Simulated assay, not measured.
Amino acid sequence: MAESKTFLDATGTRRSYHQLSNESTVPDARIRDLVTHAITHVPSAFNSQTTRLVAVLKEKHEELWDAVMEVYKVQLPPEKFAHAKGRMELFRKAYGTILFYEDSSTVREYQEKFKTYEDKFPQWSEQTNGMHQYTLWCALEAEGLGVNLQHYNPLIDTRLETMYDVPPTWSLKAQMVFGKPVAQPGEKTFKPVEERVKYFGV
């Protein structure tokens, strides 16, 4: 098992790893713990808890990306599908995928409950989903796993609803692919901090 990094260490080393193997640096129980921790403790507006997660590992992960390729093969012209298939096959070689959803029925419930903020809850729902994504990205990174985030929705939504018995009120937002890194990502560049942050009273 890899030695866990601190959270801040993980935020600094977090990158998009696309070259991944179908191995994990930690037991499946640890992955379950990380997913459970995120869904339990990541905040949401008015504690609405709108995010839903589906974790798919090993051969089930391969079946997921087989299904994505089948859907896209029907939707894309042959020349475009040939290019897209190469990327999808990279993701299929990984160990697992976490599917990130938002429950629109819960969003509507809180819109009705708090009319003053009715127009804000869809935006807040997207924000909490992003926080779940970032928390799990850093948590998996801290365990020595490589991660990348994909957005093949909405074309795959209906197929995955059937595969994973997902309620129609769950809206798919992203697919997080992870596995043991087999190659390093390219160099990351940064815009000057001074252009992006202002400090007062510091």
Rank of each mutant, 00 (worst) to 15 (best):
P43N: 00
R32S: 12
S48A: 14
R52T: 09
I31T: 02
R52G: 09
F46N: 13
D33M: 06
E63F: 07
S44C: 05
K60C: 12
D66M: 04
E63R: 12
E23S: 08
N47Y: 09
S44A: 06
T25W: 08
F46D: 15
I39L: 03
A29C: 07
V54P: 08
D28W: 05
T40F: 07
V42Y: 04
E59W: 00
F46A: 13
E59C: 02
A67Y: 07
V54R: 12
V26R: 01
L34C: 06
T50E: 06
P43M: 02
H41P: 13
L64H: 04
K60D: 15
D33A: 10
E70Y: 07
L34T: 03
P43R: 04
T25P: 14
T40N: 12
D33F: 02
L53M: 03
I39V: 10
S24V: 01
S44P: 07
V68A: 05
S24D: 02
H61C: 09
R30T: 12
S24T: 06
M69K: 06
V35I: 07
V26T: 10
R52E: 08
K60N: 14
T25E: 12
W65R: 07
V35Y: 00
T36Q: 11
H41T: 11
I39Y: 01
V68W: 03
F46R: 15
E62P: 13
V56C: 10
A38D: 05
L64K: 02
V54Q: 15
E59P: 03
T51A: 13
T25Q: 11
R32L: 15
L64C: 04
L53P: 04
V26E: 05
